[in-house]
Amino acid sequence: MSATIFGLLGAALVGIGLFGMLVRVSGVLRLLSFNVLGGGIFLVFGVVARRGAGAGLAGDPVPQALVLTGIVVAFAATTLAVALLLRLGRDGE
C-alpha cells in the first residue's frame, strides 16, 4: 500500500519538477526544480524496489543501489551548474 502511495507521489513530483524546470527562469530555481524532479524519479526506483521485496529482503537491492549511484551523480551535476551560475552572476556585477 505504501508503495502505491509513494509511487503516485513520485509521479506527482516528476510533474512538479518538470513544470519548474520549464517555467522558472532564474537559474537557481531551475536547478532546484531539477533536483525536485530527480527526487521524484528516485522515488519511482524506490517503489519498484519495494514491490520487488522477496527472498528475505525488504526490497529489491538492485534499484536501491541504482538510486545511491544516481543521487551522487545528480549532486555532481548540481555542483557543476552552481559553479556556472556563480561564474555568470559574478561577471554580471
Binding site: L8, G15, L18
Partner: peptide, 30 residues
Amino acid sequence: IGIGCAGVAAALGAAILWLPEPAPTLAPQV
C-alpha cells in the same frame, strides 16, 4: 506547460499502477 506536465505525471502514475504483478525482481538472485 502546466497541462503538459500534469499529463506526464498522470501517465506516469497510471504506468506505475499498472506495473506487472507479481513484480519482477532480482532480490532472489542477489
